[in-house]
Design a protein around this nucleic acid. Sequence first.
DNA 1: TACTTAAATAGTAATCATTACTAATAAAAG
DNA 2: CTTTTATTAGTAATGATTACTATTTAAGTA
Lengths: 128, 128
Amino acid sequence: MKNTKQRKVILEIINRSNEHLNAYDIYEEARKTLKNISLGTVYRNLNCLCNENLITIVNDGQEKKRYDKIEKHQHFICTRCNKIIDIYEPIIKPLKKYENNLVMNYKIILEGICEKCLKEEENGIKRK
Amino acid sequence: MKNTKQRKVILEIINRSNEHLNAYDIYEEARKTLKNISLGTVYRNLNCLCNENLITIVNDGQEKKRYDKIEKHQHFICTRCNKIIDIYEPIIKPLKKYENNLVMNYKIILEGICEKCLKEEENGIKRK
DNA sequence: TACTTAAATAGTAATCATTACTAATAAAAG
DNA sequence: CTTTTATTAGTAATGATTACTATTTAAGTA
């Protein structure tokens, strides 16, 4: 795997960000540094970086893919506003095996309603 | 929400299946009962049923969406062959709250290499 | 039971995220 | 410095999903 400047920029954007960016967000951010970088390059690198386990996909299933740094943390996703909140406290003890399958990674997604949406609901701003 | 025969058929397919079907699989299965059902109807109903919490999305992030019944279980996904294995044993105690966010559901995805792929690797069939 | 109306449908067209393709470029190795 | 081979920019193609529209139908009401 060649260490191109495009790949470095993409990886840096993800590692520096505290948000959960999608491919196009990353493309726009990368263009601030490399004005000619192409969207295809971003996608190709995101896939490479995922395969090499240098980044990970945040996976809420209702939206397009978002990418995140690899440090172990989990996510809470609000089903009202789609906000993603990082969880750093360990929730489960990592399993090494499930039956005879080798477990190498795990993702936990808590779904629910975030604090802000709960308050708005109380105040009748967003009554269903 | 009207109780149409299309919606009933779609929900039944998901509840009866032990596989993790995508929208097109469900469309093909539904056509065995309703020969004129349209793919758009399948998609629309899958979204309705998800919003009503009558079905759920199986979410491995690397592939198109797959749908599953709602009974509480979690998933192991093989990163080699994309096989999805259901896990019925509880892995975490359900949380009611995370900080001030209301937790209504959780999804756990264990990623790794399934028994079959491990064996094939040992036998050198699928050496990387 | 017939009438009304609002939601759902079939069929098709459009959208949009992602991937594939190609000639040109640039890491990395010798 | 030259060679090799992956990577790139730019664009076209793909394919999952959504939107649109005239028609149908579930379900409420007289």
